[in-house]
Design a protein around this nucleic acid. Sequence first.
DNA 1: TCAAAAGTGTTCACAGTACACCCATGC
DNA 2: GCATGGGTGTACTGTGAACACTTTTGA
Lengths: 239, 239
Amino acid sequence: MRRYQQQTRILLAVDCIIVGYDGTELKLLVIQRSFEPFKGQWSLVGGFVQENESAEDAAKRVLKNLTGLDGLYMEQLQTFTSPLRDTVERTASIAFFTLIDIQKYRQQLSEDYHPAWFSINDVPHLIFDHNEMVEQAKEKLRYKAALHPLVFELLPNKFTLPQLQNLYECLYNKTFDKGNFTRKVLSTKLLVKMKDKDKQSSKKGAFYYKVDPKRYNADFHSFTNFVSVPSLLNSIPKK
Amino acid sequence: MRRYQQQTRILLAVDCIIVGYDGTELKLLVIQRSFEPFKGQWSLVGGFVQENESAEDAAKRVLKNLTGLDGLYMEQLQTFTSPLRDTVERTASIAFFTLIDIQKYRQQLSEDYHPAWFSINDVPHLIFDHNEMVEQAKEKLRYKAALHPLVFELLPNKFTLPQLQNLYECLYNKTFDKGNFTRKVLSTKLLVKMKDKDKQSSKKGAFYYKVDPKRYNADFHSFTNFVSVPSLLNSIPKK
DNA sequence: TCAAAAGTGTTCACAGTACACCCATGC
DNA sequence: GCATGGGTGTACTGTGAACACTTTTGA
């Protein structure tokens, strides 16, 4: 049995897959790497884990630095540990999956990093194994969003049901029946109807809704599915 | 932007949550730690990631060492990185979730580690944050087994439908209707009926079935649920 | 008044559930 | 023959899917 002293110590990094929704499609936020090697190439937002912080702390720090925002939805995806994944020195990277309201983000954007949004279906070549991380995040998002009310993290506080439907349609790349979608969403009692309407996208106008925070927090884990499970499973591409 | 040179390097370990099923209940395999500190205390099976291996390689090595078995079902659960989780020196640990056919295991068991099986509902105090890892694994297993045909990894090659049902009943701590369960399982076409019966648990005897490997591999990701999704979600304890 | 999008109602098929009943066998 | 557990048949119910229809309003 090997003891502590004899072991190799390695660098530990975090990389964030930041997903947003601009009203039309799902977007991924990437930056231009600011140091060598591969300076100037597209990369996920990331950083090294510091001495007195956990990986979660590190991810929060990195996100705050870039966006100015706290309290973003964030979860561990997977840790990438292939010995040669980083060409400089062995580094394990914990990938974090993050959802962001693209509206809130816009104002706070720090330009130092030369960030850019890409359509999630058209991601450029990223350094190291970052493209693989993105693929995993996409799969996870589709999987989880069918069972839990994740997607509200991607929407502004006020949104309409057609907007919500469009988001689901982007996510699963299929169309849903208007009527059935509305009924299913409202049957969860998760949304509160507001008095005002969005009139931009139609003449009649669609009522705004907001998430009922009490129910949202209570029901996050025990949520019934907007997307039926067979259709969820059929939508997920085989590995 | 910090550079590589300035960063802290830390130890990277793997810990395996090894789950088995003895025909009556779900079991967790733990060992007695063989070195200080906490020598002799219960611990998950683990080890340090070596210089030229990935975390997956390390987990496979550790499992092979302990059980003599290759090709066990294994997936990354989460990485634990709290700075003080290991009292000796900062160590990040990648938790792996492993399913094993307890029968195959028995013969191969290396006694060097003083391993022991505990009921998964009655796990002793484990070192560091290992109990937390176990809790996560339990949740993950229940979640995933409802959507994917995971549980066959826990059963011998030949098994009866009542055995399978009992396994699901352990997992979700509820009873299922015999007839409905049978129909649902068989409707997946995943199982092949054999000619012989198990006569140990009843006079009539129950036919053995085996997994059709072709369908198993093809359908692993696109599997319909044995357990309905609302009941899955209701079964999962809130965090 | 017409087009366009929001929102409602209705029907149908099927999956989940409950439960009665038949079957094979050892004692 | 009868108790025991395996296995089948069937009726009820609720949900998902399809689609026709009404509503609102700007042009």
